[in-house]
């Protein structure tokens, strides 16, 4: 496989695509938002249980490519137990990473497993795939009802 392609489709991403974590609906959620990419038809629903400012539980449902599914799966794994402020901080860093705004040798240790999305930088057309779940999560945190639309 081509090196660039291998960096995009890392094993972690293929694994989360095949067996996505937290892929379920939370019936008794406190927060919810839906996201949609009209260009490719990807959609994601994010469910949250917030206790004051702490994320007690987070899950997702929807359909999309490997990048978007793995991104939602990893996001939910990492954000469980975090505070709203921490979640927003991680989102900001993640967004800078996939949009290639962290420079050539970015310090991404704090992103943990999310670092596998660094390969997305080389694929501008796929940035929306990686970030759709995250934008939707931010809306869910603030219980904004308007649908997130990325294109």
């Amino acid at each position: 496989m081509d090196q660039e392609l291998r960096e995009l489709y890392q094993q972690v991403i293929l694994d989360h695509n095949k067996s996505p974590r937290n892929f379920r609906k939370i019936d008794k959620h406190t927060n919810f938002a839906e996201g949609f990419n009209p260009l490719c038809g990807d959609n994601v629903d994010i469910y949250l249980i917030l206790d004051e400012d702490k994320i007690i539980d987070i899950s997702f449902q929807g359909s999309g490519c490997a990048i978007s599914k793995a991104s939602a799966s990893l996001m939910t794994s990492i954000l469980k137990g975090k505070t709203v402020e921490e979640a927003e901080k991680i989102f900001n860093k993640f967004h800078l990473l996939v949009t290639d705004k962290l420079g050539d040798n970015p310090d991404i240790e704090d992103l943990g497993k999310l670092a596998v999305f660094a390969g997305v930088r080389e694929f501008p057309a796929r940035v929306k795939c990686a970030s759709l779940a995250w934008h939707t999560m931010i809306n869910a945190l603030h219980n904004k009802n308007e649908k997130v639309v990325t294109e």
């Binding site: 095949k18 490719c40 999309g64 490997a66 694929f123």
Partner: peptide, 9 residues
Amino acid sequence: NIHPHDVGT
């Protein structure tokens, strides 16, 4: 189980 966008890439 394979999204067309992954196929395209």
